[in-house]
Design a protein around this nucleic acid. Structure first.
Lengths: 150, 150
DNA sequence: TTATATAGTTAGAACATCTAATTATTAGAA
DNA sequence: TTCTAATAATTAGATGTTCTAACTATATAA
């Protein structure tokens, strides 16, 4: 039983980096929008979580707060995000995505999604269903786990 | 129909980086073996493809040849890989994994696999099956695609 | 009110990756 | 055959990402 579990894990460990690399390459290929994967993830997270603190963002993307701070600096410098004071706690920061940031995020998402959708179009219905189900299951398993490395 | 495809792609795009980040964090956490994800992938690939050329490795991991060359330098300096002449084509290089490299690779794989297996143990049998099937399908879709970015 | 904890940034170092240029070798065409 | 073009790999230099450690500012609690 355990052997089977490990076999699943082994294959997952093989495939995930390949897909990730493919996504990364695709994002790099379309230079127009020019977002790295972490930048993209930060934008997407803050967009879904308006007013996030830096620490929340760092936790989600799995970077340290200083790294995240710099990354955010870059996005702010490009006008994609804004950093404001938190009304209740002045140590804290409220991060938001600007209109321009949202436009870039959506264009970037759409481009990458189209690319992936095109890949998935070569998969038969049965496997597609399995992929949807697997993605859902994997999300619940991994979603909560991401934390800052110390 | 296309909308559905895109929805699958969108969720894949959300989950894959999360899993990847989790794997990365886990590998970093166990410092003992001290392999980055690309280093790990190079070792694993060369182990499965004894005598690969640099270009083949670069294609697989999705790095440029110069980057791959440097990465390999590091692995060789640590005694994990060896670089030899190709008998037929002297421009080419024959990369191999040393005994020590194999030991490190296996220990690193085992550690990460155990970690992932542990995560997967929280998934019910039905979803586990979907994951296995999905991983298989995704591998065939993405396996051939990885190429050097230019 | 002082000590401690929390949120975030700055500073500096290490590393990874890229592009461009270089060297060596092979394959193909004149 | 000999010259040219293509291929394989590396070197050099620049850029960017991420880390750890130290610092500032604010909040909480003794």
């Amino acid at each position: 039983m355990t052997a089977d579990l490990e076999e699943s894990a082994r294959k997952l460990l093989e495939v995930v980096p390949i897909i990730m690399q493919d996504i990364r390459s695709e994002m790099r290929r379309r230079r127009l929008l020019d977002l790295t994967v972490p930048q993209f993830r930060v934008l997407a997270f803050v967009n879904r979580n308006e007013g996030s603190s830096l620490w929340e963002v760092a936790s989600h993307v799995g970077l340290t707060p200083p790294s995240t701070s710099r990354l955010v600096d870059g996005l702010i410098a490009r006008g994609l995000m804004a950093r404001n004071d938190h009304p209740a706690d002045r140590r804290r920061v409220r991060l938001t995505v600007t209109g321009h940031g949202l436009a870039i995020l959506e264009a970037s998402t759409q481009g990458t999604v189209s690319y992936l959708a095109n890949k998935l179009s070569g998969v038969d219905a049965d496997d597609r269903e399995a992929i949807d189900k697997a993605v859902e299951a994997l999300r619940t398993v991994f979603a909560t786990s991401t934390s800052v490395v110390t």
